[in-house]
């Protein structure tokens, strides 16, 4: 079974300030972009990252073949329970997510 990272050109995550995490999915071409538009729903991201749907934002940027998700961090950056100060490893969860085709 393929993973998201098998299909797309690049996935990255990073803090957007101390309170938000943002994930950029560079699909590479229109075909993969169209496919990922179907696969990567807000519901899927909310479930992978265990975050509420109502504050999760999804952006489609067809000119770059990019889908972007932003949501408030589960733990504020640097708080006692934070495990990833820059939020840059969080993208692997989506990268390793299995997709059907």
């Amino acid at each position: 079974m393929a993973t998201v990272s098998d299909r797309v050109a690049n996935i990255r995550s990073k803090n957007a300030g101390p309170y938000w995490l943002t994930i950029d999915i560079f699909c590479g071409d229109t075909h993969v972009y169209q496919q990922m538009m179907q696969e990567l729903s807000k519901e899927l991201i909310a479930s992978i990252y265990q975050v509420p749907l109502d504050t999760l934002k999804r952006f489609e940027i067809p000119s770059l073949n990019v889908i972007k998700f932003s949501f408030p961090r589960n733990t504020v950056q640097g708080a006692r329970l934070d495990r990833d100060m820059h939020g840059a490893q969080m993208s692997v969860l989506l990268a390793e997510h299995k997709i059907d085709n």
Binding site: K14, A16, G17, T22, D24, K57, F59, I61, L64, V66
Partner: peptide, 16 residues
């Protein structure tokens, strides 16, 4: 155009 426009996404919760 790609390297420039993609940077608007970087560390920014809203790409627009």
């Amino acid at each position: 155009p790609h390297s420039v426009s993609a940077h608007m996404l970087y560390e920014n919760a809203d790409p627009h």
